[in-house]
Write a protein that binds this DNA or RNA. Structure first.
Length: 725
DNA sequence: GCTACAGATGTTTTT
DNA sequence: CATCTGTAGC
């Protein structure tokens, strides 16, 4: 099978053919970035590089899947050998193989952010610091930034002299840094005792491991000879370091990204990674992809004008492959309500012309803005979908059920233990727990360990001790079944034994909420089952394919990683921590609905028609960045990302007044709208037309509801097409 | 151990 | 205004 490279343009081809040495591909919005990556991957394989020696890293699971699928389309099942992974999943894989080297024990688990905050608060209290004076979240952010920069607790403390001594007006900031030095230390210890890592550890510890351990480093360098990184502008210091370490002397590292789309600086991403690529890697070659295949000319003009006012960037200008297209419409509206109604009407008008809702999106800077839009769309009966918000994970009943599984898998997980030790209530109240906790502290052992020998705690009544004993036995009994029973069976057994369902039903007076909660909880079981199925299928597939292989089954053992294989409880828990619950596939994911999204969440997506709302000072750019938190240039990039999502139609709006915290406040339009090229913009009012009559609206909406219902019906009857990962 | 009320807070969140 | 958090009180 031979790869057809003739569909690539000159620059894309150059990027694909440059396989040796450090390569920076600056891929402007809509310039065929994903194509280049997948073709390059395919090309490497075709040129005789063993897929096993290729590592592709992305940020999201979605991007990893997409790359996998598209590469499979080009080179078939050979992609299976290549490692295509997110940074964090890669970290887990490596750490699971060498846990002891970084102070972990096998089977460590991954915390979520709520647990992290809980841990911080507990540490503050143990340090006798008023946990109301310091915001745990803010401390956690500071720790996160340190970790993202590759700085561990020890090193952070050493930085004290440099970090501190801020001018007086930043006294508060200084206080936070001081307290963070203390907390960071304790936080790390707490995690290690519990055999737990947080998300940032997945990078920090992995990088640290490679840095300090030449054997492991050599092994990984021997495994991967060719590296590719997607969305490089979003990488942080630790990730750069990780890639540098794996690339080793070969330096076959290809990074793809767009500095103008760097919008995660606040999360620790470091634009200087991409801006300074040539300094970080000697002899780096740069290829710029500047032909935009997505948007029409006027949209691109506006985008270019907006972004060109940033100074710290690669100087480049996108050119449109398509024609001029329609003008960008910029409208002023009275307030957010009028704005939302205007958008709803414009959407209805497009629908009336036969444009499917899925070709439209409403983008905004901050989540609160979605409410007004949702309301208007609902009254107009426009089908919509709000993206983001992994709410399922935040549900209490889900967390409770998960905590049981986590504790089962990792007996040292104190955080999970605390969560469910008395839920459903079994007579282990705060006082009893406190007594055990104190007893544990005296003896310098952990709470879970203390619970194991609870009958030696003298201050505890027999009744309490028995209650604890019963709980400990329950967990121990179930833990013995790990490996002997399917994970799903075990899950059902444990959750049944503690009567979670019954508790949920009894606790809520409202029958519907109770039912919903039970259903949510059962979702966990379904997820475990789905996970088992997926693993089973991919194993089968692997076996099948190696059978098919004409060449002798050279399915040599992959000795880089410990085999973490079977549908185990631990595997499930990592999986769910890294990719969230997958409620997408079955539900309304690809249905015909208008998308409502924050600009952040819209990156990488595109629509024919885009409505960008609330383009006002203090919203975009956001107030917080104007007050000195963060940089306006990043806000500008945000505006740029938003604008470049549109293929054919872009409508930008700003309100004269907006209700904020219950107050009506006059607004000014965003600075990002100043100085736009007149010939590309339609400033005339009325882009968001006045209301249609109720009857007209209803007629259009009715049509669409009917169509959607029919769609749903046909989907239900058709068998669901199975995708193979 | 749950409910009710007061008080604070009010961006973005790939993993 | 609206939502979440923590605490007091039953």
């Amino acid at each position: 099978m031979s790869l057809d490279l003739s569909t690539l343009n000159h620059e894309q081809l150059e990027a694909v053919l440059t396989t040796r040495g450090p390569l920076l591909v600056l891929a402007g919005a809509g310039s065929g970035k994903t194509r280049v990556i997948t073709y390059r991957l395919a090309y490497l394989i075709q040129e005789g590089v063993s897929p096993k020696n290729i590592l592709c890293v992305t940020f999201t699971n979605k991007a990893a899947h997409e790359m996998q699928e598209r590469a499979r389309g080009l080179v078939g099942r050979q992609v299976r050998g290549a490692t295509i992974s997110t940074f964090h999943a890669l970290g887990v894989k490596i750490l699971r193989t060498y846990p002891e080297e970084v102070g972990l024990r096998p089977g460590f688990s991954i915390t979520d952010s709520a647990e992290q905050i809980g841990t911080i608060k507990r540490i503050l209290r143990s340090l006798h610091v008023d946990d109301r004076r310091f915001d745990a979240k803010r401390i956690l952010t500071l720790i996160g930034h340190a970790k993202n920069a590759g700085v561990n607790a020890e090193q952070f403390r050493l930085l004290e002299g440099e970090l501190i001594h801020l001018p007086e007006e930043q006294q508060e900031e200084e206080d936070y840094q001081l307290i963070t030095i203390e907390v960071y230390d304790h936080y790390e210890k707490a995690l290690r005792i519990q055999n737990v890592v947080d998300f940032d550890d997945l990078l920090l510890l992995t990088t640290g491991l490679l840095k300090s351990n030449p054997t492991v480093r050599a092994k990984l360098q021997e495994r991967w000879h060719y590296l590719m990184v997607d969305e490089y502008q979003d990488t942080n210091r630790a990730q750069l370091e990780l890639m540098r370490l794996i690339a080793g002397e070969r330096q076959n590292l290809c990074v793809v990204g767009d500095d103008d789309q760097s919008i995660y600086g606040w999360r620790g991403a470091d634009v200087s990674n991409i801006l300074g690529f040539a300094d970080h890697f000697d002899g780096a070659k740069t290829v710029m992809l500047l032909t935009n295949y997505r948007s029409t000319g006027h949209i691109l003009e506006v985008a270019n004008t907006i972004i060109e006012q940033n100074t710290e960037r690669y100087d480049k200008r996108l050119r449109a492959a398509a024609g001029e297209g329609d003008l960008v419409r910029i409208t002023s509206v009275e307030d957010e309500e009028a704005e939302a109604e205007g958008v709803a009407n414009a959407i209805l008008a497009l629908m009336a012309q036969g444009v499917p809702p899925a070709d439209m999106a409403v983008l905004f800077r901050s989540n609160v803005q979605s409410r007004a839009v949702e309301l208007a769309l609902r009254t107009a009966h426009v089908p919509y979908r709000v993206v983001g918000g992994m709410d399922l994970f935040d549900k209490r009943e889900i967390k409770d059920a998960l905590a049981y599984l986590k504790l089962l898998h990792n007996p040292d997980d104190e955080q999970s233990l605390r969560r469910i030790v008395n839920y459903p209530s079994r007579g282990i109240g705060d006082t009893s727990l406190k007594k055990v906790d104190d007893w544990a502290r005296e003896r310098h052992i952990s709470l879970p360990e203390a619970l194991e020998q609870v009958h030696q705690v003298e201050s505890l009544s027999n009744r309490s001790a028995d209650a604890v004993g019963e709980f400990v036995t329950l967990m121990r009994e179930h833990r013995r079944l790990i490996g002997r029973r399917k994970a799903s069976t075990l899950t059902k057994k444990l959750l049944g034994a503690v009567r979670l369902e019954e508790t949920l039903l009894a606790s809520s007076d409202n029958a519907t909420t109770a039912a919903r909660r039970v259903d949510n909880m059962r979702e966990i079981i379904r997820q475990v089952e789905r996970y088992e199925k997926r693993i089973k299928k991919s194993k089968k597939l692997a076996a099948f394919e190696s059978q098919l292989e004409e060449t002798e089954a050279e399915e040599e053992e992959d000795d880089t990683f410990s085999e973490q294989d079977a549908a185990s409880l631990g595997g499930f828990l990592s999986d769910i921590a890294l990719s969230g619950m997958d409620d997408s596939s079955s539900k309304d994911e690809q249905q015909d609905r208008v998308v409502l999204s924050t600009i952040h969440a819209s990156k990488g997506l595109e629509w024919d028609n885009v409505f960008l709302v609330g383009v006002e000072e203090e919203l975009l750019p956001h107030r917080r960045t104007l007050e000195g938190d963060g940089e306006v240039s990043e806000e500008r990039r945000l505006a740029y990302v938003a604008v470049t999502r549109a293929r054919k139609n872009l409508t930008v709006s700003y309100a004269e007044n907006r209700t904020r915290f219950g107050q009506i406040v006059p607004r000014t339009r965003s600075r990002f709208l100043e100085g736009l090229p007149e010939e590309s913009v339609n400033m005339e009012a009325g882009a968001l037309k006045p209301k249609k009559t109720e009857d007209e609206e209803r007629a259009i909406a009715k049509d669409w509801m009917a169509k959607i219902r029919a769609d749903l019906e046909s989907k239900r009857t058709k068998p669901v097409k199975e995708e193979t990962p």
